[in-house]
Amino acid sequence: MKKSILLLAILGLLFSCHKNDEELAPTSLTGTWKLTEVLADPGDGSGTFQPVSSNKNLVFVSDNKVTSNSQICDFSIESNSSSTASYSQANNTINCSNFVIHYELVANTLILSYPCIEGCQAKYIKVP
């Protein structure tokens, strides 16, 4: 009887810790992404993401092209001119003229890391 109760308790613990696979699986890179937050570190490592009000979008298409209603390679929240660049899913990079922007895709969040002296990143969410 004790063994049965112990077995049921262990099984209960295992199933209660199960995470939803949909929450963990990253979304597809292709599609439209909207800028929601930026991080501009002041140089002491204390920078945090701050919400922004911006209409800047990135649109990734399957032929390794990304377009935007803004300058893709500028660390800016403005959306006043369009641009196009190429990207590499193998390297997780967006290719600019003289440098690359590294990106990380975590679930429905896309984080771009720009080549700044101090840390600077932009966070996007997937538009349904």
Rank of each mutant, 00 (worst) to 15 (best):
V66M: 02
L112Y: 10
S4L: 15
S16I: 11
T30I: 14
E104L: 03
T27R: 13
Y114F: 15
L105V: 04
E23H: 09
L29N: 03
L14F: 08
K56R: 15
V38D: 01
A122D: 00
L7K: 06
E23W: 07
L39P: 12
Y103E: 00
W33V: 04
T32Q: 06
L6H: 06
S68T: 05
I5D: 13
L13C: 14
T84Y: 02
L7G: 12
S76T: 06
K2G: 11
C17S: 15
I101V: 04
G31W: 03
L39Y: 04
L8W: 10
C96P: 07
S68P: 11
C120R: 14
Y124V: 00
E22T: 08
Q71W: 10
K34E: 05
D44N: 15
G45Y: 13
I117H: 11
N20F: 10
V100H: 01
C120S: 13
Q71G: 13
L112C: 11
Y114K: 12
H102A: 07
I10A: 13
I72W: 00
C96W: 00
A40P: 00
S81L: 12
A90G: 07
S79E: 11
E78I: 12
L105Y: 10
V66F: 01
Y87L: 04
F75V: 04
A85T: 09
Y87T: 00
S28C: 04
I94W: 02
C120D: 08
Y103I: 01
L24Q: 05
N98A: 03
P128H: 11
N64K: 09
A85K: 06
K56C: 02
S70W: 01
M1L: 13
Q71T: 09
V100G: 01
E118I: 08
G119A: 14
L14C: 11
I5R: 15
G43T: 14
T48Y: 12
A122C: 03
S70E: 01
Y124P: 00
N92Q: 13
N91L: 05
L24M: 14
I72C: 00
T93L: 01
H102K: 09
T32N: 04
C73L: 07
V52R: 08
Q121A: 05
W33M: 11
G47H: 12
G12T: 06
A25D: 15
I94Y: 02
F75H: 14
G45K: 14
N98M: 04
L8F: 12
Y124Q: 01
F75Q: 03
A122E: 04
E104D: 07
L11P: 05
F60S: 00
A40F: 08
V38E: 04
V100D: 04
E37P: 02
L13T: 12
L39H: 09
V106Y: 10
S4C: 13
G12Y: 10
L8Y: 04
L105I: 05
L58V: 10
L105R: 12
L29Q: 06
